[in-house]
């Protein structure tokens, strides 16, 4: 059993005009088998939440706690967090020229498991995973994210999710920039991770579209650096119909 607990998290970022607080007390608990959707307007701090949990150096935690199965995540380095079982699928995956996808995947798997994967089963696993995500076998020889289309980048993120098999996954706008076919392929991958393995997922999105393919157990409206309202899947339908205006104006008061 794994539980990611975020408690009263405050995060700020350095700007030209001094430090600016982005997260203003976020509290969330994600358990095994639970899918939490975080929805909110641009600039509400959704991505900041994702990157702060993953440990991006740009963000400074000024208060609160994040624990994974009771262990202090905030005390860990970026790579320690990943090895502890956290995974962040990024909205803008980074190009690493000259490093092949297969080398990258093997290196990451070795780091996460603490030992090199068995060559024969590993190659099979990688090929099967790439195939399920509609990625050609030659994909492995390409440089990480270099020259990838938007859809390829996202499918590559989900391939990593399936192969690295974390305890909890944070998906940061994985649906953005995807056409409907790619969205289905990506959603299938996430569903395999959720359903087959009973894992916890924090799904950050701007649109309700992806929620037609991935059914959340909980929906949280994220406005002005914190959760404004939480509910079940029907909250997403309400947001689809009425938008964020009600929450944004309430937060502005």
């Amino acid at each position: 059993m794994s539980t990611l607990e975020i408690n009263d998290l405050h995060v700020s970022v350095a700007t030209e005009d001094g430090d600016k607080e982005i997260l203003k007390g976020v509290t969330l608990t994600i358990k095994d088998g639970e899918t939490h959707a975080i929805m909110g307007p641009n600039g509400s701090g959704k991505s900041t939440l994702a990157y702060s949990i993953a440990g991006h150096p740009k963000y400074t935690v000024t208060g609160g706690t994040v624990t994974l199965d009771g262990d202090d995540v905030l005390a860990m380095s970026v790579d320690e967090r990943a090895r502890a079982g956290l995974f962040l699928a990024m909205q803008y995956p980074v190009e690493v020229p000259g490093v092949s996808v297969s080398n990258f995947l093997r290196t990451a798997k070795t780091a996460i498991d603490g030992e090199a994967p068995k060559l024969r089963t590993w190659v099979k696993d990688v090929n099967a995973t790439l195939q399920k995500l509609d990625l050609d076998a030659s994909f492995g020889t390409r440089s990480v994210n270099e020259g990838f289309s938007g859809g390829e980048k996202k499918r590559h993120e989900i391939a990593q999710l399936e192969l690295l098999d974390p305890k909890v996954a944070i998906l940061d706008e994985t649906d953005s920039g995807l056409d409907i076919d790619a969205l289905k392929v990506v959603s299938d991958g996430v569903n395999r991770f959720i359903e087959d393995k009973d894992k916890g997922v924090l799904l950050i999105t701007h649109y309700t579209r992806i929620l037609r393919y991935i059914t959340p157990d909980f929906v949280h409206v994220f406005v002005n650096g914190k959760v404004a309202e939480s509910g079940g899947p029907d909250l997403a339908d309400e947001l689809e119909a009425n938008g964020y205006d009600k929450y944004v104006s309430a937060a502005a008061v």
């Binding site: 967090r81 990024m90 780091a111 690295l164």
Partner: peptide, 16 residues
Amino acid sequence: FYLRSRGIEENEARRL
């Protein structure tokens, strides 16, 4: 950051 977020230690990430 990208490499390290996949569990790869800083030294190894630099090497890559």
